[in-house]
């Protein structure tokens, strides 16, 4: 399979980048940096990079700062309180990039055909009423956090592909959307598999499609930093990306390619459980962590075609300024670009 070989190639690039960084120790070794993170499995790259000492080897003393949502994290990057973080390229992020505050420097989570990705969900009421494919959602209500969020993008692109109309309901928080979907206040939603699967298991919601069917190679989340770091702290940024990429390589190899067997998976689950689902017992958390496995871009490569598509969509919806070009938002000088 071509995809597989490409991935291998990327792993190699990531690996070499890391060795390069190791070979030439950063001038300022043990530099203190702050990395923003959400307690999601998709942030495992950073967690592994820290726990297995990859950041330390790259000469960085990483401190995590945890957030509840992506927007405050983006604002913290803009204000300089956080150096690097991983999140979706939301409309807010694009606005901040336009104001010269942040830059996208790499890719993190991405959809890939053949790998379990984000799901379209419907409420039980809608399902019983006969909505069993995304095409049947015409005129139905669709939960999003805010206008310009990744949920809005996914729903909108699906609706456009199916030629249907959706009523988007902004509900601010993922928790509120889940509540509204379970109680039938809204009809549909899309979400990462580790949330979608247990929800569907409860019988109150049903999975009716895959996001990757509509958005193959969708660059769901990205690595980003302040524009100042991207332009002025090139060594530090390279060091961060190398440490991060080694974490990602471990994650993909163990969780998706299963190259370290069951024991490797359990070991990594233990590691990730320190950060994610900390309020749940290990057995329960393990299930969610394994369920939530999605491929992270090797070497933090980013799919610029997908990012361009997202930017164009924001502009078409009138959510961000029409004059913004992709070059304003991303700095492609650090990683391999795809698409």
């Amino acid at each position: 399979m071509t995809i597989f070989t490409r991935r291998k190639a990327l792993a190699l690039i990531g690996g070499t980048a890391a060795t390069a960084a190791l070979a030439t120790p950063a001038l300022a070794s043990n530099r203190k940096i702050t990395v923003g993170a959400l307690r999601f499995t998709s942030h495992s790259g950073s967690f592994i990079g820290f726990e297995r000492g990859y950041f330390a080897k790259a000469g960085l003393d990483v401190e995590f700062k945890f957030f509840q949502a992506a927007t405050p994290m983006a604002v913290a990057i803009a204000s300089g309180d956080v150096d690097y973080a991983v999140t979706a390229m939301s409309g807010g992020l694009v606005s901040l990039a336009d104001k010269g505050a942040v830059k996208v420097i790499g890719g993190a989570l991405s959809e890939e055909t053949g790998i379990d990705g984000q799901k379209f969900l419907v409420s039980d009421a809608a399902y019983q009423a006969g909505v069993t494919t995304p095409a049947q959602l015409a005129g139905k209500s669709y939960g999003i956090t805010t206008a310009g969020s990744s949920f809005h993008y996914m729903g909108s692109k699906m609706a456009a592909a199916e030629g249907i109309d959706l009523k988007f309901k902004p509900l601010q928080k993922v928790g509120a959307i889940i509540g509204a979907l379970k109680s039938g206040q809204i009809d549909a939603w899309s979400i990462v598999p580790h949330i979608a699967k247990p929800l569907a298991g409860s019988g109150k919601v049903h999975i009716i499609g895959n996001v990757s069917d509509y958005l193959p190679d969708y660059q769901v989340t990205t690595v980003f930093t302040s524009a100042k770091n991207a332009a002025g702290e090139q060594q530090m940024t390279k060091d961060f990306l190398s440490g991060y990429s080694m974490g990602v390589a471990d994650y993909n190899a163990t969780m998706i390619d299963k190259s370290h067997g069951e024991a490797g998976i359990q070991e990594l689950v233990d590691l990730v459980h320190k950060y994610v689902y900390t309020d749940r017992p290990r057995e329960k958390a393990a299930k969610s962590i394994i369920n939530g496995t999605m491929r992270l871009n090797e070497g933090a490569a980013m799919n610029t075609a997908s990012l361009q598509d997202q930017l164009s969509w924001f502009q078409a919806e009138g959510l961000v300024d029409q004059s913004i070009s992709l070059e304003t938002v991303i700095d492609p000088s650090y990683v391999q670009t795809l698409g």
Partner: peptide, 20 residues
């Protein structure tokens, strides 16, 4: 905040999330 497509409050919240 919940489920409003139009409205001054929805407009403000949207602007906030877009950092506009």
């Amino acid at each position: 905040m919940l489920g409003a497509e139009y409205g001054i409050g929805a407009y403000i919240l949207e602007a906030g999330s877009l950092y506009d």
